[in-house]
Structure formats: C-alpha cells, structure tokens
Design a protein around this nucleic acid. Structure first.
Length: 512
RNA sequence: GGCCCGUUCAUCUAGGGGUUAGGAUACAAGAUUUUCAUUCUUGGUACAGGGGUUCGAUUCCCCUACGGGCUACCA
C-alpha cells in the first residue's frame, strides 16, 4: 500500500493561529497522500523572524491533533529529512543562493529601503507596466551587476547589509503546469528579481526556502492555495536554475475560501465580525489577549468539520455528502477539485454538525453533555443522563444546545410560557388536570406505553381532543411547548415528580 | 495600473455539443389530527453578456463585464 514516491507537505508559517483555509489545504494534502499510500509532512516555514508569534507552532500541531489528521513526518515527529523547521536549516539555503551567484543566475543587491521605495514611486509615476525591481531597472541600481563582483564582496566584508536577488531572464516565456488549472504561460518581462536571501537575519525568503526544501525532502506534489499561483513561474525557474528540474514536483493550486458575503478571501478577522469561527481552536493573542473563537470550542465535532471542509472546493462526483475520513480518502481526487473560489457557507457547517450529532451514540453524546453541564447533573445517575441524551440529541445541532431542550428532565420548570398559556389554558383546564392526576396515579407500571394508553382513554371518556390535556400537561411538566414525546417524558420523570409538577401548575397558572 | 486565475439556482456544487440542466444547504408550503424541533413530501429560483465554430452550444474559441489573487528584505 505504501508508496514512497508520493510525498506531500503542509508548510505553514507560525505567524498566528492556523486559518480554516489552511486546515482545508492540509486536509487535501492528507487525503491525497493517504489515498496513494504516500507520506504527509509538516514543515514549519519560519523564515520571517519579524513575524514569529510564540505559541503558533504548538497551536498548529494541536489543531491537527484535534482534527484527526496526523502527520507522518515533520516538526514534532521527526523523520529522515529533519530538521523540518526552516529556522534550523539556515546553513542549507545560503549555499544554494551562492551557487546561483557563481553561475550568474543571481546577484547581490545593496539598495536601501528608501532607494527601493523611490524606485517604486518613480516607476508608478511613469505608469510603467512593471513597477518592480526587474531586469528593466536592475542596471540602474546598487548591485553586483553594476558595482562589480570584487567591489560587492568587499562591501559585504565591511558588513554592509545586502540581499541576494534572482536574475530573471529577459523576455522569456516560462511555461508552467498546474494539475487543477492546466498549462499557464508567463513572460518574464512581467516578473521581478525577487529577493531570495537576506543578510539581515541570514535567512532565505519563502521562495528559496520552499523550493530548496521541497527538493531536499523529495516532495512529489505541491498542493497549496491559489495565492501562490503568481509565484509558480518563479519557483519553476528556480528549479531550472538549480538544476533540479528533473525532480520538480507537480503543482496543484487550490481555489480560495471566500468570505460569506462574497467580498474577498476569508480572513482572520471575518470570524468574529460575522459571528462564526475561522480557526479550528480558540486562540488567545499573546500580545493583546484578544480571543478568537474556535470550532472546537463552538461545539463542532472534528469529523463533521473535516467533512464540511472537504466539500469546500471538492466533490466526490456522486450525491453522497456524509463521509467518514476513510471514505474521504477513498473518494478523493484532485480531478474533482473545482477551479473557482468557494464562499464559506456557515449554515452548511451547522447542518453537517447536526448530521454527525444524530449519528453518534447517546453514550458518546452523554459524555460531552455531562462535561458541559457538570454541576447541574451531579445528582443524576449516568444511565438516566444518557437516556435523556438519546431523546434530545436529534433535535439540536450542537451538544451545548441540548440543555435548553432537556432541562426539565433535571429540574422543575422555573416559569411557564405565557403565550402558550394564553392559547391553550382554558377555563376547565385545571379540573381536567386534577382528573388527569388521578388517572396517572392509578397506573401501576408507570411506563410510556401505559401512560399513552391511559391518557388516550381519558380523553375519549371525556370526549375531548388530545391537545386539551396534552398541551397543558406539557406546560406543567416542561414549562413550555418544547421537548420529545410526552408519555416518554412522564416515564422518565416518574410518577411522583409528575404529580408534584402538575399540582404546582394548577396552583400557579390562572386560566382565562 | 500591470500580471495571473476564475464565472451553472441565494450558497456549495453535478453535468458537459442535442438533458424536463441533477443534488445538498437555506427559504416557502404541506404531512406526522400533543408542543417545539427533527424527519418526510412538495415548490420556486441558475448556465454573466456579446460575437464566432456548428445542423445544434450552458458545454469549444474570442472579446467584454464582473469577481478573486498577486504585485515586500511576508508567507
């Protein structure tokens, strides 16, 4: 089953909590790898020392643990290509950058931030089609191409800060291929001489580090978000420049996750703004203490989230929608990934959770329910609680919504629904209920079927509709017009509690 | 501005030269003559526009429009 040549990676940078779009990207990588018996790798891309956020890496690892998407190799696990944290691979990258310089495929650049800023302003004011540091302008800048190699090297020795930039070929068509989008051609005249390495922190930028590590770690397929599509030509060129084109991975750029209101890609801020989570787990910003909600804390089941996420930009080609992780692995293929961005449909996420809630056993739900309502449930036996869960779990989307559907199994109603009283509590209701107490009291085996029969018989004798008794009865036991089948509730509560509650409602509720 | 990607119901999407354009969510109505919810049934709404190619285009090609992404010594 295992296929050593299939190797994919998820490569986040630890700049904050993991975005839900990142979870989907990782999920697709995971499904792709598992389907083909390949290896799923976690690499941490922390090449921007300025943006490092403490706790982010742990958060990422915890998130995948919760989602149930284990890595085979990588940070926290180890593996044959360790280390998997780019900051620990510092020395590796510089030699490749220097190789490119030796081969005249890259050069040193000494331009200051101000000079770069001026360049950009100038090109913009000229309405140049390419406003970046490109081959059109590099002959006017401070770099080893204009200064000469000897002068450049002595500047470096003096400690003058510099970067290494790629030397883009002039006016050349680069052809790249994407599994999802097909062939794409780009002219290098629209590209720029991207920075590959910076002396300030002795670290590469994303592009060099990413290409280098994908090569060294023998990555076979790069499956990542569409935001990377514009830099694909640069990456392909890098493979060529470094002489690695023979082992270049295949690329698949995934459609983006869009905001629910359709304006732009889903961002970290949207969740709290629109009232739904965009992170798998709750995140507390270490600097501001600002709390962002997570799917876990909002009551989502990880398997429901995974199922929902898998359908954002992919479909199985059939009409089946509920998939376990193993079924997803079986069904997944990159051919069925769509090209267009997927708007984030929060209602559908809720629906998935509801489906999973219904599927799960009362015992499993009971455990969660007990954790959430610990104090309220302390006095009750476990099997009673589990029974209640079996009765109400299908009626809600989240376990935390279950208390409002089941409180009456555990405590007397604190108030009565006035609207319903107005509509259904008639002048003769009190006497009717008093009679019903006698009927109920006479049932020797207080079970739902017996109660059901007795109540039906009672109504027939009185020649009244069932609702005349049932609704007031529900009102006195539950306090509102909610809840499962009434005889079931009676049985669960037991005769004594039932009679006590009816008595109380007769004394409390005044008929019209 | 430049470059790149995209465009089927409100939303996620199936389909693909000849179909009553299918499903799911959401919404609406009805049913379950005990509530509420679930569930079930039913219903409405879609191929962005314009040119080609073709006997025929939603499907292939081009243009336009719109949407999105990228355009950092961020990833």
């Amino acid at each position: 089953m295992s296929n050593q040549s299939i190797r994919v990676r998820f490569a986040p940078s630890p700049t904050g909590p993991l975005h839900i779009g990142g979870v989907r990207t990782a999920l697709y990588n995971y499904l792709f790898a598992k389907k083909l018996g390949g290896t799923f790798i976690l690499r941490i891309e922390d090449t921007d020392s300025n943006r490092f956020v403490p706790g982010a890496e742990e958060y990422i690892i915890d998130s995948f643990k919760w989602c149930g998407l284990p890595f085979d190799e990588g940070v926290g696990i180890g593996g044959p290509y360790a280390p998997y944290r780019q900051s620990e691979r510092k020395e590796i990258y510089k030699q490749y950058a220097q190789q490119l310089i030796r081969e005249d495929k890259a050069y040193y650049a000494f331009d200051t931030p101000e000079e770069l800023e001026n360049l950009r302003k100038k090109l913009e004011s000229e309405k140049a089609s390419n406003t970046s540091y490109s081959y059109h302008v590099r002959k006017d800048m401070n770099n080893s191409l204009t200064l000469g190699m000897a002068a450049s090297e002595s500047m470096i020795n003096e400690g003058i800060p510099y970067v290494i930039r790629i030397k883009m070929p002039e006016n050349t068509i680069i052809e790249v291929n994407d599994i999802i989008r097909g062939k794409i051609e780009v002219n290098t005249s629209t590209l720029d001489d991207k920075v590959l390495w910076k002396s300030s922190d002795q670290l590469p930028t994303y592009h060099l580090a990413n290409v280098t590590d994908d090569f060294l770690m023998k990555i076979s397929h790069v499956i990542r978000g569409e935001e990377w599509l514009p830099s694909l030509p640069l990456h392909v060129l890098l493979y060529q420049y470094l002489g690695w084109q023979a082992s270049m991975p295949q690329f698949a750029h995934l459609p983006l996750l869009l905001k629910p209101d359709g304006k732009g890609k889903l961002s970290k801020r949207d969740g709290d703004k629109m009232g739904f989570p965009v992170f798998p787990l709750e995140w507390i910003d270490p600097k501001t203490d600002e709390i962002s909600m997570g799917y876990r804390e909002s009551g989502y089941f990880p398997d429901a989230l995974v199922n929902f996420l898998s359908f954002l930009g992919w479909n199985p080609g059939t009409e089946k929608e509920l998939f376990s992780l193993n079924e997803l692995i079986d069904a997944f293929s990159l051919e069925h990934v769509s090209k267009s961005g997927a708007r984030f449909d929060f209602e559908k996420a809720k629906w998935f959770n509801h489906q999973y809630l219904m599927q799960k056993s009362p015992e499993e739900i009971g455990n969660i329910f007990m954790k959430i309502n610990k104090e309220k449930l302390e006095a009750f036996p476990q099997d009673y609680i589990i029974k209640v869960c079996g009765l109400v779990k299908d009626r809600v989307s989240f376990v935390h919504e279950m208390w409002s559907q089941s409180y009456f199994f555990f405590e007397d109603p604190q108030q009565y629904d006035q609207e319903l009283i107005k509509k259904k509590w008639k002048s003769d209701t009190n006497t009717l209920l008093s009679d019903a107490i006698n009927v109920l009291d006479n049932i020797s085996l207080f079970t739902a079927p017996a109660i059901h029969d007795a109540l039906h018989e009672f109504c027939q004798q009185k020649n009244i509709g069932l609702g005349m008794v049932m609704i007031p009865l529900r009102l006195s036991l539950v306090g509102a017009g909610i809840g499962p089948d009434l005889p079931l509730i009676l049985e669960m509560l037991g005769k004594q509690t039932v009679i006590k509650r009816i008595q109380k409602s007769i004394n409390t509720i005044k008929s019209e």
